[in-house]
Design a protein around this nucleic acid. Structure first.
Lengths: 153, 153
DNA sequence: CTTGCACTTTAGAATCGTTATCGTTACCTT
DNA sequence: AAGGTAACGATAACGATTCTAAAGTGCAAG
């Protein structure tokens, strides 16, 4: 069980282990990102960092997030529909699914024991798509979040 | 049970029912799209139509696909990862999930009885995200397709 | 503690996918 | 035939992301 603040240092350590240099920019991005469970876009993070790092380039944010994703330290979520179809990044690396609010677009994590397919899933896929080997099953729960249920935006 | 060719006429009929005019361009787009289970992008369709309709505008393809989607006659799929993150369109309106090949990006449909959440799903979401009302559950089966299993691209 | 260099950053331009604008055309109604 | 509405084509605009070239810097070896 990790304390919240540890996510940041674990991510920094693993970034270095992946052979990447720990620049001030990367440290700042990771600090801003690692504890953020709101699935921010690159834009979101860039804007939050700008006050403290007025010279930081947009590309640096993308590059860093891309590096994190390729190192397996972050996930990428893309959703059709709502306005602004920018990629959303997710620092949560434990197995989970996503709940998406059709009204406001909020994305929530839903912990899952595993993403490995069940026997039944493997059987079903084999039947409908012979030769396709399933390695993971992601789920998107669509619906309306608590806030929007009260006040539809 | 529909014959293949009927998808086209059903889609045209429903397009008109939705209050849209059946122009030659729309008819051509629907003819190209309705039987296509490969989840084409707007670009794909545009390029296939260009030989026969050299004057057709790119915007017309987008507008028509958008109209189809808003009329509930087509779905939109977006996937993180692979090259080119263009929206893919899906003429299949019966409940189904998607299998995505991590190697070549191919998307296959997997028929599902319903997308309605099971009791267990509702319970799990209620526990992890109190107040969130689930209306549908989409699944993405990730893995490797038959072709790529033989010859990784 | 220096030094060197491969890796990074920056700023801005370029590219990609998509949407909006606008003048023109097609068609339906009267 | 006139007027109105919807759709079209061409192209500009737009947001998101990637690329480029030049200048800067972490960090491992000395």
């Amino acid at each position: 069980m990790h304390g919240e603040a540890e996510r940041t240092s674990v991510m920094l350590r693993d970034l270095r282990r992946a052979g990447l240099k720990l620049t001030p920019q990367r440290i700042a991005i990771v600090r801003q990102f690692a504890e953020d469970l709101s699935h921010p876009t690159a834009q979101d993070l860039f804007e939050r960092l700008r006050p403290a790092f007025p010279t930081m380039s947009f590309a640096t944010v993308y590059n860093t997030l891309d590096a994190l994703a390729r190192a397996g330290l972050a996930g990428v979520v893309r959703l059709p529909g709502k306005r602004g179809d920018a990629a959303r990044f997710d620092p949560n690396t434990s197995p989970h699914h996503h709940a998406v609010c059709d009204s406001c677009g909020t994305v929530l994590d839903l912990p899952a024991g595993t993403l490995a397919p069940t026997q039944a899933a493997v059987r079903k896929v084999r039947h409908a798509a012979p030769g396709f080997t399933v390695s993971a099953v992601e789920r998107i729960y669509r619906g309306v979040c608590a806030a929007c249920a009260r006040q539809p935006s």
